[in-house]
């Protein structure tokens, strides 16, 4: 591609669009379904249930330590499909690009997306590109949708939690949200905190194929662990109790939280899952998660109770309890 900046022409559907697809996009995402260049992708799937999910990505900044908007968009949808207990297979990508966006940045984002899909073993089979006039979008927005196949016998849902279930988290919380926040202009932190953006499909497959009973899988993204636990407590009409001392938080992440008055329980994760597992299988599932490259720091953080349905309680380090409510609005840096 000769141009250095994305022009409105790149979204026109004409020659310039075609050359961008042929020269930039196709070589990166290459697969038989996409190469056909039909209006949609046609593919075979195994018999049984499908899972289908979509998500849009508007993160600011678009590049941050540990990733960029591209792998975030691919991993995010892979994870959403995986949390249905499905094996993600195919992904669609919709790009909305602001006029004047540097082609080299776009290339980097697309390369990262291709890398993320390849790593997860998922194909990007259809897509779309639109270019909007300067100021009508902020640099680049990405939508991804994904389809996955649910293996026979797998039945996970936010409504399946049962009293006695142990709750496992696959690693440290709040890494992604704090990374993005720290890289925003104005806050000016230096640290080695990185986004945890990662595909969790292999971890999920290992768990669901282990023969263990799995009730709930969820990735605590926006709203953080606290909000996700509230969703599950209300979907399943159960109480949830977690233990503050068991919550894994990286030192630097905790540091930023202290500085800005944030609660890590309400900060986004992009490469973590929580699993609700009956006590008998909890130890085994924990071991399986720990074997995965993205699950080394997995721990049990609490359990499901039949008291106070719909409510989430935290046992604090000093032995007190407090209610963990859903996040009500965006957390803002405070000085007080």
């Amino acid at each position: 591609m000769a141009e250095e900046k994305i022009l409105l022409d790149h979204g026109s559907g004409g020659k310039v669009s075609h050359s961008m697809f042929a020269e930039l996009i196709l070589p990166l995402f290459e697969n038989p379904e996409l190469s056909k260049q039909d209006d949609g992708a046609i593919f075979d799937v195994d018999k049984g249930k499908l899972a289908f999910s979509t998500d849009s990505y508007v993160v600011d900044p678009i590049f941050f330590p540990g990733g960029n908007i591209g792998d975030l968009a691919v991993n995010g949808t892979i994870n959403d499909v995986s949390m249905c207990g499905a094996v993600p297979k195919f992904i669609s990508v919709g790009l909305i690009i602001e006029e004047g966006f540097p082609v080299k940045d776009l290339k980097l984002i697309l390369e990262t997306m291709a890398g993320a899909a390849g790593k997860a073993g998922v194909k990007i089979v259809t897509g779309d590109t639109k270019v909007v006039p300067r100021g009508k979008a902020d640099k680049i927005f990405i939508n991804t949708s994904g389809i996955g196949v649910i293996p026979k016998g797998v039945d996970v849902s936010g409504g399946n939690a049962e009293p006695g279930d142990k709750i496992i988290i696959s690693g440290t919380i709040a890494d992604h949200g704090i990374t993005v926040l720290s890289s925003r202009e104005g806050l000016r932190f230096d640290s080695d905190i990185q986004s945890d953006s990662a595909p969790l499909n292999r971890m999920v497959s290992s768990i669901t194929s282990s023969g263990c009973d799995i009730h709930v899988l969820r990735d605590p993204t926006r709203g953080g662990l606290g909000t996700t636990l509230n969703e599950i407590a209300s979907q399943s009409r159960v109480g949830i109790k977690i233990d503050e001392l068991s919550l894994p938080v990286r030192g630097a992440v905790q540091g930023v939280c202290e500085l800005l008055g944030f609660d890590p329980l309400y900060i986004a994760n992009e490469g973590k899952l929580i699993a609700f597992v009956p006590e008998k299988d909890a130890g085994k599932v924990l071991e399986i998660i720990r074997q995965d490259e993205f699950g080394k720091d997995a721990v049990i953080i609490g359990e499901v109770t039949n008291e106070d349905p719909g409510k989430v309680f935290l046992q604090t380090a000093i032995g007190g309890t407090r209610i963990i409510d859903m996040l009500t609005g965006e957390q803002l840096p405070r000085i007080c």
Binding site: G261, D263, L314, Q315, T316, A317, I318, G319, G320, T321, R322, C336
Partner: peptide
Amino acid sequence: CGTHTMSIFRHGIRSV
């Protein structure tokens, strides 16, 4: 002090 208020809640101090 509001930061005391927050801390008292956050650590569940009332409950102990």
